[in-house]
């Protein structure tokens, strides 16, 4: 084990920022392509080969668009809110190990930017703090759709944080640590967590979809009901920052699911660890797009019903059963 230096951590932080924001931009292209293929369309085709430069076109459009602030809006909060979403999404990623440790130019780069020994809780807490982005955006813009979106943000995030936390509690009990690196080491010696905790995996997936505001549960900006919810009045790069935050959160949830439930970056048969985790993250990301193409929205009251009457009791029962099995 080599020594972790400040330089290594800075390199890791820059890597996370650069790669994840690039992937978040590229994710929009992937999403549009996958949704198009699932409806047997072509998707973006005209900018660059196979539409690959569509991201650049979108970026130019977002940057040159008028930055519009409504007259009665609370201007400071309106401008700050998108930054909160993007910032919390990236801060959450700082405690997530993405690749195995490696050495570049003789500098040891750790797998994780900030190896706090409460990794999972930190990620969950930061994603919980991310609720202030949509919330303040919706409340500051003096728009009734925004207010409804903000109200749904508060209700949805509080409810599904409970489910996320309780569903992860059972795996945490089995591993006996909150560090994501310990989870990865646990998977080296045991079968994947998804086979031992299938209920927890399904619950975490559902809650993860809800916390990242993905389609069956994207009630915050459900365009069929509330125009665009909290993002109604946003335009240009401020709207783009919400988007980057959402995609960064999707990647965070994908990484969490891969590390906790799908074996992390341990070597898989002949596949090296770094490739294995990329494949797993890519599959989780694809799953989110796949689900978006397949399933309709949930009604808000059904959604709350699902959280408190189905998922939370199931999670608690799962924790109790896991505890009994560990004790016996």
């Amino acid at each position: 084990m080599m020594e972790v230096t400040y330089l290594g951590i800075i390199i890791k932080a820059i890597l996370i920022l650069a790669i994840i924001s690039a992937i978040a931009g590229f994710g929009t292209y992937i999403e549009r392509k996958v949704l198009a293929f699932m409806q047997r369309r072509l998707g973006p085709m005209h900018v660059g080969p196979y539409g690959l430069l569509q991201i650049a076109a979108d970026g130019i459009k977002l940057f040159t668009k008028e930055d519009f602030i409504p007259q009665n809006a609370n201007k400071l909060m309106f401008m700050v809110a998108p930054v909160i979403t993007a910032a919390t999404a990236f801060i959450a990623l700082s405690a997530v190990p993405v690749f195995p440790d490696f050495t570049i130019f003789g500098i040891f780069v750790p797998s994780i930017a900030a190896d706090v020994n409460i990794g999972i809780l930190f990620v969950l807490g930061m994603m919980a703090a991310g609720l202030y982005g949509p919330l303040l955006a919706g409340m500051s813009q003096a728009n009734k759709w925004g207010i409804i979106g903000a109200a749904r943000t508060a209700a949805q995030f509080i409810s599904y944080e409970v489910v996320t936390g309780l569903s992860l509690l059972a795996p945490i009990m089995m591993v006996g640590s909150l560090s994501l690196i310990d989870f990865n080491h646990y998977n080296e010696t045991h079968p994947w967590m998804v086979f031992m905790q299938p209920v927890a995996f399904v619950l975490f997936l559902i809650a993860g979809f809800a916390e990242t505001n993905r389609t069956p549960f994207d009630l915050l900006e459900n365009e069929a009901e509330i125009i665009a919810g909290y993002a109604t009045e946003y335009s240009g790069m401020r709207w783009g920052m919400f988007f980057i935050g959402e995609y960064a959160n999707m990647i965070t949830v994908s990484v969490l699911a891969s590390i906790i439930f799908l074996g992390g970056y341990t070597d898989l048969w002949f596949i090296p660890g770094w490739l294995a985790i990329i494949l797993k993250i890519a599959f989780m990301f694809f799953l989110m797009l796949w689900v978006r193409a397949s399933w309709p929205h949930v009604r808000p009251d059904q959604f709350m019903w699902l959280a408190w009457k189905v998922l939370m009791p199931l999670a608690v029962i799962n924790v109790v059963i896991t505890g009994i099995v560990i004790m016996v």
Binding site: V116, L124, A128, L131, Y132, L135, A150, A151, F157, E161
Partner: peptide, 24 residues
Amino acid sequence: DFLGVVQLIVYVGAVMAVYAFAMM
């Protein structure tokens, strides 16, 4: 660390969100 994260989850994520809900 633990208390810090609990502060984050409980106060920022839950208590303040309930305040915000009342602000609606």
